[in-house]
Amino acid sequence: MGTPESTTSGRTLRARAAGLTDQPLTLLTVGVFWTWLVVRWTNDFLLDGALIERNTSFFPVGPFEAAAATLGALAASLGPVGFPVGWLAGFFEFLAASIPYLPQLATGVWATILLTVLGIALGFLIAVPLSVARVYGGSATRLLALGYTELFRGTPLLAQLFVLYFATPLTTIIRELPAVGTGFIPAQAFWVAVIAFMLNSAAYQSEYIRSALNSVPEGQLTAARAIGLSKVDGIRHVVLPQGLRYAIPGWSNELVYLIKYSSLASFITVRELFERTDAIASETYRYTELFVLAGLLYLALVISASLVMEYVEDRVAIPGLGTTSR
């Protein structure tokens, strides 16, 4: 495929987290991050706050405040050369300020992950037939699939969210469904967002899969037909297993993209990470700390996703297929 960077789209470049993902420090941070999340969720959702009360952080604020104060005093006494110590003091101050909000943000992270995973997984189910239609369909199906992708790729995701949420009866319909908004099941806005992400991400995913299918040599389908497989079976058993492997890098980028853009669900009142952060910030006016914190949490999610996808790519790798030279 020649030079991947120049031939693939700009969005393909998104996840290439520039080699940061293989550093031990990154792995350690991601490990701590997920341990915290899982323990937090288990405590809050499953154990009903058995370990610690729901809105109480695991970490005491005191020591961090004390450290910040000591270091701050030290920095002041050092005068102009004390600025690195001053920075460290600032870092501890930041930690101390962040700690009380962590439990609420963890709940937001849960919604963010759920939105992303559902959006991309459901989108994938649409994207596969869509891309197959683009590559193998008749002229009418091809045009239809092309129209779909162009429309969804040509308009902002936020506008799509607004159309679905404000301008269609979708909200009312979902609200009427049994169980929506009770117990574990999120309220209607969440589902509208999932539908929007599904439709939007299907369009992008189908582009990645389409170009991957095109890179499967034609002889593969010919050979499949020659042993008596029907066209559909040949696509299913021979072309797709190869094409989907080629599509993994693009697909990882789509995952990263969706993690970040899931923040747009806050505009339609979904209580995901950004919305939670914003709500706390407008109460406490600690905009900088909170949004830096939110940014770090998103970054941790994005890096985790890249790591997972690298692992998946590794696991399904086949000699001579995909990233290795072709």
Binding site: A17, V256, K260, S263, F274, Y287, F291, V292, Y298, L299
Partner: peptide, 12 residues
Amino acid sequence: LRGTPLLVIIIL
């Protein structure tokens, strides 16, 4: 910058 939502960057 690539790992943070634009929304967060703008607000910040």
